[in-house]
Design a binder for these strands. Structure first.
Length: 630
DNA sequence: CTGAAAATGAAGGGCAAG
DNA sequence: CTTGCCCTTCATTTTCAG
């Protein structure tokens, strides 16, 4: 264990009392405001708060006048409100777009239209009439029929201005982008473009030859990446990543348009079927070890990233590996065409967790967290060994999910096993094993199985014991929060390369933070957390992170934001000005519309929650844009 | 004690990969 | 075919405020 984690008692039996922070320790000079920032609204309304709160925000770099104004308007209790107000002020001074208006804009941008078009449509129709705005936007999209080829998503050199998907609605006749080079125009310029991106001429011409004269830059880079991957490590991606040999650019364009136009009157299922029809399948590697594990380091130590993807800022995106077809190629396409690193945490700890990670981190000289976590069920849960029957051959647990088995089920199992004296019959064994695998049951007594306790789940996922305990959280919610979290050892292994890059500490924008898997990983790696802006919708999760922040005596600043859709460009810019930019943007967007166990709304990336992925992309683009202009 | 709200239990029967 | 999956819905039970 490294120095930074040694001040935390990993085996503490004490409950974390979130509401009992105790008296806030006296303000130092470097970090005088922690308790105001960290606490939620209710917890820090105690003594002489006003000036403390004011000092806090002044310390963040806001002017005293503005802070005083914000505190007067919002009271000194709700720091979130104050922060929001502060971030709004400069906007109000300039053009005063009401928050409702920006909401409308965001709404349509979220649907995939470009910011400029949306603004224009709103100007024409008024912000109240969303229907006619939509109609106007769709008309714009239809105008796009002119043979102007898509260029934005395939042109990594154009600044990612405005929307992520301008190619759906953008038309040269509607507004002009300053393009010195149109990479899709002809073979020669595409060749030039690819070499400019850092690919060799051979790679580029081979790709053009292979993908055909009509192929887009995106397809070409896909092909080159796939070829590089295949060359670098057969074990990593044993099958060609994009098996469709000659994708047609026009098809793709039509397909994308269809997806957004027809959304309005087609059932999700129909859309999904269509998507499945022409989306590329992306094959999962076997074994699922990504660029290697601590016990099995891979010989692949570097990879070529598109120039537009290079850090800093670094980013790290996570989601379930077994998503519906086409989801990962879409994710990859929106994240600079970087191939996901698929890893099963099975190779890091005692429990499976198949996930894909898209990131632009270096991959050489990774190192694991120490001590290494237990790698088998027996090591992780030694007390179960005594009761483990020989016919249960499991050595690893399955993926830890958000629900646990009921007491009734474990009781049924006990009764089924108690009947015979000797070995249970094969059919009983089969039933029991099936249920044990399905619900991750472990042996806790003679003929007795039980679901994992929350603290065991915490341990298996690499969190400190009792990380999610206390503060009024229910058992069920603990399982839920844990089931949605990172496996810390896995993520930390990938993030370990940041330690040498940021010895003085790191500023992190943590999206969909949950219970703080990323923060815990960085902390356990011994990377000081200078500033953490955490976006998390769930209050219990925010409390868990705050509590951990206190427990581990963090010296940096922690800021909570509730709703990712409220985090607009202005706020990001101001945050970046105050914190000197972000070094890392990290997060895993909701998977519930992707995950296999969702019978009802497995709608893919277009699903209600999972579509928040596009907010991740939006925010990452913004951070990158402001970083490069700093 | 009573009604509302929260926690729990169980069924559900989808999709993709091997 | 089988297995596995950061799950949702709704009925039922338990807890809690009044």
């Amino acid at each position: 264990m490294d120095g930074h984690s040694s001040d935390f008692d990993w085996d503490t039996e004490d409950e974390l009392e979130i509401e009992n922070y105790g008296p806030p320790y006296s303000s130092g000079v470097t970090h005088p405001y922690e308790e105001a920032v960290v606490g939620s609204a209710e917890t820090n309304s105690v003594v002489s708060p006003s000036c403390k709160v004011i000092d806090h925000f002044v310390g963040m770099g806001f002017s005293k006048e503005l802070v005083t104004k914000a505190v007067e308007e919002n009271g000194d209790e709700n720091t979130n409100l104050i922060l929001e107000a502060l971030l709004q002020y400069p906007v109000m001074e300039s053009s005063l777009p009401s928050s409702s208006k920006s909401k409308v804009i965001d709404h349509f941008i979220g649907m995939g239209f470009s910011e400029k078009l949306v603004t224009k449509a709103i100007q024409e129709n008024g912000e109240g009439n969303t229907d006619s705005i939509l109609e106007t936007l769709l008309t714009y999209s239809a105008l796009e029929k002119s043979p102007a080829k898509q260029h934005i998503d395939s042109d990594p050199s154009s600044d990612m201005e405005g929307s992520l998907m301008e190619d759906f609605s953008d038309s040269d006749s509607l507004y002009e982008t300053e393009e010195t080079i149109n990479p899709d125009s002809d073979e020669e310029s595409r060749l030039l473009f690819l070499t400019k991106m850092g690919y060799t001429e051979e790679e580029a011409s081979a790709a053009i030859e292979r993908c055909g004269p009509d192929s887009t830059i995106a397809e070409l880079t896909d092909f080159i990446c796939a070829a590089q991957m295949a060359k670098a490590a057969d074990s990593l991606f044993p099958l060609e990543v994009y098996p469709r040999p000659k994708p047609s650019c026009n098809d793709e364009l039509k397909h994308k348009k269809r997806r957004f136009d027809n959304d309005l009157w087609k059932s999700k299922k129909q859309i999904r079927l269509e998507m499945n029809g022409d989306e590329e399948a992306l094959h999962l590697p076997n074994p699922m070890i990504g660029f290697g594990t601590p016990t099995d380091p891979c010989h692949v130590t570097n990879r070529i990233l598109p120039e537009s993807a290079m850090g800093p800022p670094y980013f790290y995106y996570e989601n379930v590996a077994l998503a519906p077809k086409g989801v990962w190629s879409t994710i990859s396409r929106f994240l600079y065409d970087i191939q996901p690193e698929f890893v099963d945490s099975l190779y890091f700890c005692a429990t499976a967790r198949k996930r894909g990670y898209v990131h632009n981190l270096p991959i050489e000289n990774r190192f694991p967290l120490v001590p290494l976590p237990p790698h088998t069920i027996h090591e992780a849960l030694p007390l179960t060994r005594k009761w483990w029957p020989s016919w249960d051959t499991r050595t690893k647990l399955n993926c830890l999910q958000t629900c646990i088995a009921s007491a009734k089920l474990t009781d049924r199992i006990r009764k089924a096993l108690e009947l015979p004296d000797g070995e249970p019959t094969p059919s009983v064994q089969k039933f029991v094993i099936e249920q044990c695998k399905k619900w991750n049951l472990v042996w806790v007594g003679r003929n007795k199985v039980a679901p994992l306790e929350p603290d065991e789940v915490e341990m298996l996922l690499g969190f400190p014991k009792n990380h999610t305990r206390g503060g009024g959280i229910s058992r069920t919610d603990r399982y839920k929060s844990l089931g949605n979290s990172f496996q810390v050892d896995t993520v930390a292994y990938h993030l370990s390369v940041l330690k040498d890059l940021y010895p003085q500490g790191i500023s992190v924008l943590s999206l969909f933070s949950g219970i703080g898997g990323a923060e815990v990983a960085l902390h356990r790696l011994g990377i000081p957390l200078k500033n953490v802006v955490s976006v998390e919708i769930s209050e219990v999760n925010r409390n868990i992170l705050s509590s951990w922040w206190e427990q581990t005596n963090q010296k940096g600043t922690l800021i909570h934001i509730e709703d990712i859709q409220q985090l607009d460009d202005n706020k990001i810019e101001h945050m970046m000005n105050h914190f000197g930019g972000f070094d890392l943007v990290i997060g895993g967007s909701p998977c519930n519309n992707l995950a296999g166990s969702n019978r009802h709304h497995r709608d893919g990336l277009e699903g209600k929650e999972s579509s928040l992925f596009f907010d991740y992309v939006r925010i990452l683009d913004t951070v990158k844009r402001f970083s490069s202009s700093r």
